[in-house]
Design a protein around this nucleic acid. Structure first.
Ligand code: MN
Ligand code: MN
Ligand code: ZN
Ligand code: ZN
Lengths: 146, 146
DNA sequence: ATTGATATTGAAATTCAAAATCAAATTATA
DNA sequence: TATAATTTGATTTTGAATTTCAATATCAAT
């Protein structure tokens, strides 16, 4: 969490941008949570530290964090853009429960390797990818009803 | 294309819905294209057959086609919902060119199998999944500039 | 073929997250 | 501190997705 902060402060300086109280508050709030947060989620969290903070600033700061490669987008399939930690976090796929909306993070190296091979087959240069598996989690499938 | 039509007509009857000229026009337009079409795309295509057709009807019919499992959603990553053929079409993943927006359809059986294994590891019952790889296609990577 | 209950239609309005606007406030550097 | 540049938050705007509703079409039963 220290490294991310230093990285962001440096990113701002290099871009000729300013380090503001709001940006620091929002960064801290983001780093403190391990969830996949929407702009609104993070807005509500950050507001607890500084009630005068605006949604627009959270929106813009999250965008900056993505540019700085501290955050990245996640699409859980509900049409709302969410963000997760990226700095020093490995790539992973998501298993998303359709009932309780829990998100399991997982990686399978051989899936990753096979994707590389698949791209090669089409002379396609991969830049990024996303794999989301929708289904029912252990807890929810154990329930009798619903 | 004949089977899909029969299937849709049957779907409508079973649901107590009506077969209208608009629905037939829109279904035909959808079946005729092999592209990943947005509501607006299909609206523009269908309008050539019947200029009085409305966007809302295209939207609603596409929704019905998805329910009838004739169409399914595709997310190319540009925030616009698209649809593709589903009836008698196997599952596949997408390689999406960031430069020319070409979409390559591909499947790797061992990726699919590994996904199953990954789910098992978490006692997760998969219902559906999507894998999108973003990158640069052969044609675009061959170009000197841009 | 006519009826009539019910579903459907298209134009327009609404929703809602994402993005843009802008005057006032804050920051960085000298 | 003075200055120029950036940032802020309230507000507005955008645009795709979805809903509304009065007029129209469908279809099973006459
Ligand atoms: Mn994640
Ligand atoms: Mn496809
Ligand atoms: Zn669950
Ligand atoms: Zn290309």
């Amino acid at each position: 969490m220290k490294a991310e902060r230093a990285h962001f402060f440096n990113f701002l300086k290099e871009k000729g941008l300013k380090l503001t109280q709001q940006r620091e508050t929002i960064l801290n709030a983001f780093l403190k949570t391990e969830k996949h947060v929407s702009v609104e989620d993070l807005y509500n969290i950050a507001r607890r530290k500084d009630s005068t903070i605006g949604q627009a600033t959270v929106f813009r700061t999250l965008k900056l964090l993505a540019e700085a490669e501290i955050a990245s987008h996640v699409d859980i399939g509900d049409g709302i853009r969410r963000f997760e930690h990226r700095y020093n976090h490995k790539h992973h796929d998501h298993l998303i429960c359709l009932k309780c909306h829990k998100v399991i993070e997982a990686v399978d190296e051989s899936i990753e390797q096979r994707q590389e091979a698949l791209c090669k087959k089409f002379s396609f240069q991969p830049v990024s990818h996303r794999l989301e598996i929708f289904g029912v989690c252990k807890k929810c499938s154990g329930k009798v009803k619903n």
